[in-house]
Design a protein around this nucleic acid. Structure first.
Length: 921
RNA sequence: GGGUGAUUAGCUCAGUUGGUUAGAGCACUUCUCUUACAAAGAAGGGGUCAGUGGUUCGAGUCCACUAUCACCCACCA
């Protein structure tokens, strides 16, 4: 025990401490008592390893979980991973192509074998990730570990699909979607990355006979034009509205035949281009919307796709068939030029949508896909999914404030609403293999009949069957049945995460009479979850979908509070990314400085929703603090005697420093608690660190070395250290737990109760007259005098203190004043009034004057200068105060306690000024 | 085009519903190996809170405009 090393070495203890926590069983809420509190950890994608951002998220969640556990709540922090459909398949395919020489893994391996490869990769990546989460000290319940692709979660996916399908909210429809040619799959709107690149705006006429020109950046799609839209009030074109123009040979001799209807649409900007827009319903979202509008208005236009899923022109483009869009564009422009139909060619910058996962330019194509209808009324609920998503944040589901999600910081609510307003039906089918297969089956007979006429006998077979169980033959005709080959968008399963994770077995998930049920205690206990944190980039991807799913499936919000954190950036303000090559492995940092230092540095200087900077100096600093704490503890463990019980503490034995530190501690406990509860993690950690460093170590502990009441001191030193460890535990769990053990505690700090303010409150009764702050100021003043006057370090000095009312109090603290690095040999106390010619002086608190008579050393000029500056400063302050206090409006309107405070300030400042002037050299 | 955020010490950032003379860490200056800690301690220096106007008894904090930077959404026919 006596041989504790000077330097704390985190690497030596962390793994063992984590194992002890795990073994204790207290990560599992079943072994805890109290009110339930739950956080579902956002499942990291099984695409690779954890980065710093994950490390920060783990820290935030673990701080919250540990804090709540110490508050005496039954805490569930549930870990898991996400199969990340497209992202994982794209990654593995890329690896197979780059590392193993495959050219087209899907073709060469086939569905089963490729899936096996992806699965191997995912499992491997999963175990790495889980180890990293452990290394971060995350106090999550491993017995409830979940995976979006495991049996239980898959069942939830299928059941929810079934429910939505039955409610008519999931439908199969022919609509335009984002299509990745490279990935041969649909891509979600949110997974698009826009890149800016130079393009050209062409103004041309379809034919010589066509009455006006239109503008486009994508001429090759014009083979699919079926209308031209103009603004309804545009005088130039009003006369054409409703007319149909037939263009015989577009693109070449014996070319494509176009039938162009002139339609009116408010969306057209008369100022842009020629004010007339070629409408290509098959290859543009806005044009498709016009197509739907026209259909609804009973004035339909056609939809003609001219680009195929292979990214090449199709047969509608006649001899252009089979060539790429780029080539087609050039060829068509050439033709337009020859025919003198091209009127203008302008350079412009355009945004091109690319697929985030596959990296190629995305084509917009019409296809038959599965969609979630967000604007359709939910049967029996009288509102749409969109409305549910809005309600959950606006005022609470069904107007119930208990079902309202609070977003921190609140400004993200606006962004969320804005997104919801622009939301289109959600395309949920993907043509990749890694993911939840769509639980829909078709009878082979039915499929072949879909296009042709259906005889009444076969009608049943033509209807798709939705089933969460695997079906082998058609229940109607007994014939061969096939499952829909597509898989679900990964966000479909992530959307269920907050509740699908609460089922422990597939059997607990049921769909009874259209009602989705998780039949177990966990669900009853822990839902809705209490807290969720995520980066702002997940607001739409994930948060919105969790709200949609939870509100629809369970009629409950998924979580009560959501905290949006910013992005971590490096010293230069750059994002950490693979492409920049500036990634930092959190494990490297943890290895070098310890996990505690890493965690502390990750939450220091962060503010909700605000990007934060991370650099090694920050970790170094945090590591220094950990080491400081270690040394404080080391001293207290080695130097203090046995500890008294609170009952045996004699209040009359307490010194002013004791009462002072108790008062500070009382405030601190409150501050740390409220800051954590308000998600101000950085502030909370800053407060406790400042207290430990400055108040506790530099003053209280130093003072304790020279004070007499050893029993009370020991009690306070140990108690404050212990409670300080508790306050720090959520932030730096390892070192605090380690010291806790060295203090001889048998119970783990992990489940200790959060410190109680009341002990400190009862010990801190202070009358103003003996505030330790005054002693501190006297000591600082004397040290300052020494430093300013360059008094030799070892030289003893004399000091005279004037200050009538305080004489007795100062006398009591004489030893402290002498010993605490002031080098005072003789301390004279005197009633005020006597003047000393040559002395260094300080006046503090407007009441106490300190003289150090050092005739031969003192730099009189410097003294004078300092005093003058101080006087000037004070005069300015006083005159400001006077003006304020003369102001009738101030006196009338400001709260009385503010006025009172200002009056006291004035008196104090005036006293100080008087003394400064009186005793100035 | 619409929106959001940022602008506070040399650097990185705090600053909670407006209320003492605006804070921290790093860096800087000076001093100290004092028996918990030199990965430390002591004492300092450094700021017209981006600019302009307004509201208020009182503005870093609220409002408007401007500037610069960053980000998000939509559109680019």
């Amino acid at each position: 025990m006596k041989e504790l090393p000077k330097i704390y070495e985190p690497q030596k203890h962390e793994d063992e401490i984590y194992q002890n926590w795990e073994k204790s069983g207290f990560f599992n809420p079943d072994n805890l008592k109290g009110e339930p509190y739950s956080i579902m950890m956002p499942p990291p994608n099984v695409t690779g390893v954890l980065h710093l951002g994950h490390a920060m998220e783990n820290s935030l969640m673990d701080i919250m979980a540990r804090y709540q556990r110490m508050q005496g709540r039954k805490v569930l922090l549930l870990p898991g991973t996400d199969h990340a459909a497209v992202a994982t398949q794209a990654k593995v395919e890329k690896l197979l192509m780059e590392k193993e020489g495959y050219r087209n893994p899907r073709q060469e391996l086939g569905r089963e074998k490729l899936l096996e490869k992806i699965k191997d990769f995912a499992e491997n990546s999963k175990s790495t990730i889980l180890n990293q989460i452990k290394k971060m000290g995350t106090s999550c319940d491993w017995s409830r570990l979940a995976y979006t692709f495991d049996e239980t979660r898959s069942k939830a996916v299928n059941k929810v699909f079934e429910k939505m399908y039955t409610d008519g909210l999931i439908y199969r429809g022919y609509r335009v979607v984002n299509w990745s040619i490279k990935g041969q799959s649909t891509v979600s709107d949110d997974e698009l990355v826009y890149i800016e690149r130079p393009g050209k705006l062409y103004t041309f006429k379809y034919s010589k006979d066509f009455p006006f020109a239109i503008a486009t950046t994508r001429p090759e799609t014009k083979f699919g034009d079926t209308a031209v839209a103009v603004h309804p009030r545009d005088k130039r074109y009003q006369k054409y509205i409703g007319k149909i123009f037939e263009i015989k040979n577009f693109g070449e001799e014996k070319g494509t035949e176009l039938k162009i209807k002139i339609i009116a649409d408010e969306a057209v900007d008369p100022q842009f281009g020629t004010g007339a827009v070629g409408v290509t319903p098959a290859h543009s979202f806005t044009d498709f919307e016009m197509y739907e509008k026209q259909k609804a208005a009973n004035n339909p236009i056609e939809i003609i796709p001219v680009i195929g899923p292979d990214g090449k022109m199709n047969e509608k483009a006649k001899s252009f068939q089979g060539i790429s869009v780029q080539e087609a564009r050039e060829k068509l422009i050439q033709w337009l030029k020859e025919k003198k139909l091209l009127e203008k060619e302008e350079d412009l910058l355009q945004n091109v949508a690319t697929s985030d996962r596959f990296g190629d330019v995305v084509e917009i194509l019409p296809m038959t896909q599965w969609f979630v209808a967000v604007n359709k009324e939910i049967p029996g609920r009288g509102k749409t999914l969109k409305q549910l998503m809005r309600e959950a944040i606006a005022g609470g589901l069904n107007g119930n404030p208990a079902q309202k999600i609070t977003v921190t910081p609140a400004r993200f609510e606006k962004i969320y609403f804005n997104w919801i307003d622009n939301l289109r039906d959600w395309c949920i089918s993907r043509q990749i293999w890694w993911g939840h297969r769509i639980p829909v089956y078709y009878c082979e007979r039915g499929i072949s009949n879909i296009q042709s006429s259906i005889s009444p006998k076969e009608e049943k077979c033509s209807k798709p069957i939705v089933s969460s169980k695997i079906i082998n033959k058609c229940p109607h005709c007994g014939g061969k049945i096939i499952q829909d080959p597509d898989t679900l968008d990964t966000w479909f399963s992530s959307g269920l995460w907050t509740f699908s994770t609460l089922a422990n077995t597939p059997e607990q998930i049921k769909l009874e009479n259209g009602k989705f049920i998780i039949d177990n205690k966990d669900f009853a206990n822990f839902y809705p979850t209490d807290w969720m944190q995520m980066g702002s980039e997940l607001l739409f991807f994930w948060m919105a979908r969790m709200i949609l799913m939870s509100a629809y499936v369970l009629d409950e919000i998924p979580f009560r509070d959501v905290y949006i954190h910013g992005i971590l950036r490096n010293e230069k303000g750059q994002k950490f990314s693979k492409s920049l090559g500036n990634n930092i492995d959190p494990l490297d940092i943890s290895h070098q400085y310890g996990t505690d230092a890493l965690r502390l540095s990750l939450v220091s200087g962060i503010a909700p929703g605000q990007d934060s900077h991370f650099y090694e100096d920050k970790v170094k600093n945090a590591g220094n603090f950990v080491n400081k704490l270690w040394n404080i503890s080391r001293y207290i463990i080695q130097k203090t005697k046995e500890q008294k019980e609170i009952e045996k503490i004699k209040k009359e034995n307490l010194n002013s420093s004791d009462r002072w530190i108790a008062k500070k501690m009382n405030t601190l406990i409150g501050e740390v608690s409220t800051n954590i509860e308000k998600f101000n993690f950085s502030l909370a950690s800053e407060k406790i660190q400042t207290f430990i460093r400055n108040d506790f170590a530099d003053w209280y502990l130093e003072a304790s070395k020279f004070e007499e009441n050893k029993n009370e001191k020991s009690f306070l030193l140990k108690t404050i250290l212990e409670d300080g460890l508790k306050l720090l535990h959520p932030f730096i769990p390892f070192v605090t737990e380690y010291i806790w053990k060295l203090l001889g505690k048998e119970k783990l700090l992990l489940i200790e109760k959060w410190p109680d303010k009341s002990i400190y409150k009862s010990l801190s009764k202070i009358n103003d007259a003996d505030d330790f702050e005054l002693i501190k100021e006297i000591i600082i003043a004397i040290r300052n005098i020494r430093q300013e006057n360059k008094i030799e370090p070892g030289k003893k000095i004399n000091a005279i203190i004037y200050g009538g009312n305080f004489t007795k109090f100062i006398q009591e603290n004489e030893t402290l004043i002498k010993k605490l690095r002031t080098g005072v040999e003789n301390l004279k106390l005197s009633k005020e009034g006597k003047e000393i010619k040559k002395a260094a002086k300080k006046i503090i608190a407007g009441k106490i004057q300190i003289y150090v008579p050092l005739e031969e050393i003192i730099d009189i000029e410097k003294q004078k200068k300092n005093t003058r500056a101080e006087i000037e400063n004070l005069q300015k302050y006083i005159s400001n105060l006077k003006i304020r206090l003369k102001n009738k409006d101030f006196l009338k309107k400001a709260p009385t306690e503010i006025v009172q405070k200002e009056k006291e300030n004035l008196i104090r400042a005036q006293e100080k000024l008087k003394k400064l002037e009186k005793y100035s050299v």
